[in-house]
């Protein structure tokens, strides 16, 4: 998917899918979903948090974690610094504690614009801590995926993050901490084959790319002709891999419902929460 094109002084944005031109402010107000064709354009982690959490409720944590270049991998430092400058982030995922309709959640949100949302040591650690914070603070954990998979530049360290994050999910399972994963465009490879696929509930945004290997690799594996919707959220849904495809505008209310339905048993275990703040609509 190409970046929405800008015309004039940035007051207009063109849909990457149907090419329709929108007023930039209307496009943003519509959560970067094309009002004409419904295409969900990628959004930043910051914007995702704004539209998911109650106003001013999100407290970012572990924002100081950054990768080194443990393998001394060629060009990795340059790529990472470039991504830092472009996004203002130190890695591909933003994590913290927030509230959804008054209910506390531990949140992780991937940002595809940082090296394709790839998972290296830092992203793996931050997802692990997000799930562990759910355990600690007795609240549901929610992870928004947007990733091409494991980060090659950290070699096997990246592969080990698949295990580390899955272990944290397993501990949440045993402690009855609800864990919800939202597949956004794209959710692929090493992330899909680890913590993303073992969530209690899996939601996806429409038309997100969802798959194990890139199409190029799949073709090398002998896949010559694939259905039009191959490796889409709809394909995964039709094969029973996803609970529900939810439009961006409805995600907060769906998450809110799930948090209340699955996390009700945690409320009395939470410390420092006033009942009056809970369940209150924004």
């Amino acid at each position: 998917m190409s970046k929405p094109g800008k015309l004039g002084e940035g007051a207009f944005i063109q849909c990457a899918k149907c090419k329709k031109i929108h007023f930039a402010n209307e496009f943003e107000e519509n959560l970067r979903v094309c009002s004409s064709c419904g295409w969900h354009h990628r959004i930043s982690a910051q914007r995702r948090i704004e539209i998911t959490c109650d106003a001013n409720s999100f407290e970012e944590l572990d924002q100081d974690l950054k990768s080194g270049n443990p393998l001394d991998f060629p060009d990795y430092d340059e790529k990472r610094v470039g991504a830092e400058d472009k996004t203002g982030l130190l890695d591909s995922i933003v994590t913290g504690i927030g509230r959804i309709d008054g209910n506390r959640v531990s949140l992780a949100v991937a940002d595809f614009s940082f090296m394709g949302g790839s998972m290296g040591s830092v992203a793996g650690e931050k997802v692990t801590r997000t799930l562990e914070r759910g355990l600690e603070k007795k609240c549901p954990a929610i992870v928004f995926c947007a990733t091409g998979g494991a980060r090659m530049q950290e070699g096997l360290l990246s592969l080990m993050q698949m295990a580390k994050t899955t272990s944290a999910a397993e501990r949440c399972n045993r402690a009855s901490i609800p864990y919800i994963c939202v597949f956004t465009d794209p959710t692929m490879a090493g992330v899909l084959a680890s913590y993303a696929s073992v969530a209690d509930v899996i939601l996806a945004e429409p038309k997100s790319m969802v798959g194990f290997a890139g199409l190029r690799v799949s073709k090398q594996a002998g896949v010559s002709k694939v259905p039009d919707d191959f490796q889409s959220a709809e394909f995964a849904y039709n094969h029973g891999m996803i609970d529900k495809i939810v439009e961006r505008k409805d995600l907060k209310s769906t998450l809110s419902q799930l948090v209340q339905l699955l996390g009700g048993h945690l409320l009395e275990q939470q410390e420092g929460d006033k009942l009056t703040t809970r369940g209150a609509k924004k």
Binding site: D64, L65, K66, S67, G68, P70, G120, S121, V122, G124, E125, T128, E154, L157, M160, Q161, A163, K164, S167
Partner: peptide
């Protein structure tokens, strides 16, 4: 597996 990864602050 919990401790695997190399990071900086």
């Amino acid at each position: 597996f919990r401790n695997l990864g190399v990071m900086a602050i």
